[in-house]
Amino acid sequence: MNDQNKRQNDADPILRVENISKSFGGVKAVVGVNFDLHEGQLLGVIGPNGSGKTTLVNLITGFLKPDQGKIVYKGKDINGWAPYRIARVGIARTFQMIRPFAELPSFKNLIIPLYSPRVKALSGGQYGDLDAVAKDYLEEVGFERESAVTYKAAGSLPHGYLKRLELAKCLALRSDLIILDELFSGLSIAELASIVPIIEKLVSEGKTVIMIEHRLRELFRIADRVVVLNYGSVIADGIPCEVMERSEVRKAYLGSE
C-alpha cells in the first residue's frame, strides 16, 4: 500500500474525472462523479444494475457527451472528443454487449484494431502482415495457435472465447488505459483462472486498467482500489476490503434500508 500511495502523490493522474453528470430524459444515469486514476493502477468500478457504470465508460470513451464536468487524460481535456480520437490517444474499451464481426474468422476480427491509425503510428507508420500479428494476440489471450477456433467465424464462438477476443482487441491497440466492461460476466471459474493472469500481466507492464465488475470476489483479488456507484453517484472510494465494510455499500448491494 505504501508503494501505491507514493505513486499517487508524486505523479499527475493519468485520468481525472471531474464532476461529470449525464441524464437521459428524466433518468440521472451519472451524477457528479469525481475520481483520479494513477498510472499502473487497477481500479474496480462496482454498483448494482443500472447504477451508471456503463454510462460512465461511455462518457470517458466519448460515446456519450457529459451534460457537465470535465475529463482529463494525460493532461489533455478530452471532453467532447469523438470516440475515435479518444481511442487514438490510448484509451481502449470493451463492450458489455459483445457483438463481434460475426462473419469474419476470429483472427480477422483483430484486423480492425490492428488497422487503427494508433497501431500504425506505434509500429513506425507501417502495417505489415496483420494476419500474423493478429494470431499472436489471439494466442496471448488463450486461443491455441493454429487451432480451429482461430479460423472459426466469430459469430459462432462460445461465450468464453468471445470475451477473450474482446480483450485481445484491447491488447492489439497497445493502449495505456484499458476499460473492461464486465469482462468476467458469464465466465466459468476455469476460464477466469486463465484470464486473470492476462490482466495482472497488463498491470505489471505499467498499463492502467478500469474494470467494471459484478464478480466482486475475483475483482477484489486484483484491484488496487474500488469505486462504488449507486444511482449514478459515487458512494464509496477506497481499497477493496475497506469499501465492502461501509454500511452505504452494504445497503446498496443488499437493497435493505
Binding site: F63, P100, F101, Y115, S116, P117
Partner: peptide
C-alpha cells in the same frame, strides 16, 4: 483486403470500429 474488411466491419458494428480509433 484489410482496408475492405474495415469497411465491412463498419456495417456490422460501427461502434466497435470507432472504439479502436478509426474515424468511420
Amino acid at each position: 483486403t484489410d482496408y475492405g474488411l474495415v469497411l465491412k466491419a463498419i456495417k456490422d458494428n460501427d461502434r466497435a470500429v470507432m472504439s479502436v480509433g478509426i474515424n468511420i
